[in-house]
Nucleic acid binder design. Structure first.
Length: 466
RNA sequence: GGCGCGGUAGCCAAGUGGUAAGGCAGAGGUCUGCAAAACCUCCAUCAUCGGUUCAACUCCGAUCCGCGCCUCCA
């Protein structure tokens, strides 16, 4: 089995192999921390999480870098308006982002790096580009001269030979020779934070940070670079231009982009104002796992229409998975092994991984899980599923949860301890034995109030937290 | 105008030459003190129109519709 990924560069599905055969060097464009990140952003970060977990499941070692953009126009504007430094301003949103990511169970990349901590490297990169005549200065700012990079447009597959007729090309506040040229180093404007540099006091343009940080930690040619589709142009196109102009080597081997999350048929974006943050959704009572499942359950290259009905469906689907796990662990099964079931477990496991291998087709992978669950439930009802089959079923669930990570309920504040629950269950059992069903139901209802659901099965009482 | 993605059951969503996975919702049934869980049954001809083929949702052409990028943006 080998993972195949859609490479934006070639527009084809390609078998993925890391350069050195073992370690995957992956770079992710992280958030600009001027506000809370919305769940559209988290769609992309969830995709990246699924990707890295799949790579880990394939036996690779991850060296994954994600940047935090902590200097940028909106940050400067908002920080100035609030009368605080940009670091003070961004710290709160950086923390919120990392906290939210943890709530969504996104694995922390091996390194999370900050733009403002790499200014000297960026300055050096701009100087090197200037020395090799890839830049020019206009109004004190340094620009990348696109005309010096022949491959420009190869990622977005755009032909820049003509005008961009019909497109809105606004005149930048700085003068540029060519509409495609982009700023590497912005000269300081009154009141703005700035760093000293040979090009003059100023701050980095947006694109240079990713090139510099990616290459600093991962080398001149990295394996995978991810982001949302909206970054393909111009951001990633510009990253390629800068990086390859600097090194003369291919910057990224696999470009992988996630499609957008939509709300009511439109892109969720801060500028449209139609966005939800994680906090908004949690406040409505949805669990982090439901959100994670919803974001992860459709293939990353398909636009995903976010709805609260969808969240509810996700939540119910997770219940089904958890109930199955509960049943595996609670049902009293006859000793033995059903060979057919055992083979079925192996087959389902393969189907699950085959779905992931197919460009992270999570919907297909999930289908393999659910189909298996239905069949095994039937077999258990029929008494054809034996104790020896449990391991195979649990292995499938373990592999599933290593990627999806939704089986364990998020901890809620307060609540009963396991022993308290067991004591109440014992009380109820007594009441049931004496056919005092009113009392038994009262205990059950009390537990429901406390977030614990009891289920009477032929093998005894089982419970789960809601 | 250019580039790209997509239109499959009430909703979400796989499949992509041989007569439509899966999830949610809904209806009926089994089980149960009741409930829950689980199981069973039922519920689509794949935007439209042409063409190729023994055979098309799947290939080709045209049309319609939706979305994204081309400007800060996940």
């Amino acid at each position: 089995m080998a993972l195949r990924l859609h490479n934006t560069l070639t527009q084809e599905l390609e078998e993925f192999r890391p350069q050195d055969g073992n370690t995957v060097r992956m770079y992710t464009c992280g958030p600009t921390v001027y506000h809370y990140v919305h769940i559209g952003n988290f769609r992309t970060f969830t995709f990246q999480d699924i990707l890295r977990r799949t790579l880990i499941a394939r036996g690779y070692v991850m060296d994954h870098v994600m940047n935090i953009t902590d200097v940028e126009d909106k940050i400067i504007r908002n920080a100035m308006a609030a009368g605080v430094t940009i670091n003070e301003y961004t710290a709160q949103y950086t923390k919120a982002f990392l906290d939210d990511s943890a709530v969504l169970r996104l694995q922390r990349p091996e390194r999370v790096v900050f733009a403002t901590e790499h200014i000297p490297e960026m300055v050096a990169a701009v100087e090197k580009l200037a020395a090799s005549d890839h830049t020019y200065v206009s109004d004190g700012s340094t620009y990348f001269k696109i005309g010096t990079f022949p491959g420009y447009g190869k990622l977005s597959h755009t032909n820049f030979s003509g005008n961009i007729a019909g497109a809105r090309v606004e005149v930048d506040e700085y003068d540029k020779d060519d509409a495609r040229d982009f700023v590497l180093w912005k000269s300081q404007k009154p009141g703005e934070p700035a760093w000293d540099a040979s090009m003059g006091a100023g701050r980095p343009g947006w694109h240079i940070e990713c090139s510099v940080m990616a290459m600093k930690y991962l080398g001149e040619t990295i394996d995978i670079h991810t982001g949302g589709v909206d970054l393909v142009f111009p951001h990633h196109e510009n990253e390629i231009a800068q990086s390859e102009a600097l090194t003369g080597k291919q910057f990224v081997r696999y470009w992988v982009h996630a499609e957008h999350l939509m709300v009511e048929g439109q892109k969720m974006s801060k500028s449209l104002g139609n966005f939800f943050t994680l906090r908004d959704i949690l406040e409505r009572g949805y669990s982090p796992e439901s959100i994670r499942y919803l974001l992860a359950s459709s293939q990353y290259r398909k636009q995903l229409n976010f709805t609260f009905d969808g969240l509810k469906a996700a939540s119910t689907s997770i219940d089904r998975l958890r109930n199955f796990e509960l049943r595996l662990k609670n049902d009293k099964l006859a000793i033995g092994l059903n060979q057919q079931i055992d083979a079925r477990s192996t087959q389902a496991l393969q189907a699950f991984h085959a779905g992931l291998d197919d460009d992270l087709n999570t919907a297909d992978a999930l289908a393999a899980i659910f189909e298996y669950i239905r069949e095994v439930n039937s077999a258990m009802d029929a008494g054809e599923f034996y104790a020896g089959n449990v391991a195979g079923a649990l292995k499938l669930l373990a592999d599933f949860d290593a990627i999806f990570d939704v089986l364990t309920p998020s901890q809620k504040e307060g609540g009963l301890s396991d022993s308290e629950i067991d004591a109440l269950i014992a009380d109820r059992a007594k009441a049931k034995k004496s056919r005092d069903f009113a009392r038994a139901d009262a205990i059950r209802n009390e537990l429901i109030e406390l977030g614990v659901i009891l289920e009477d099965t032929k093998d005894g009482v089982r419970w789960k937290r809601k």
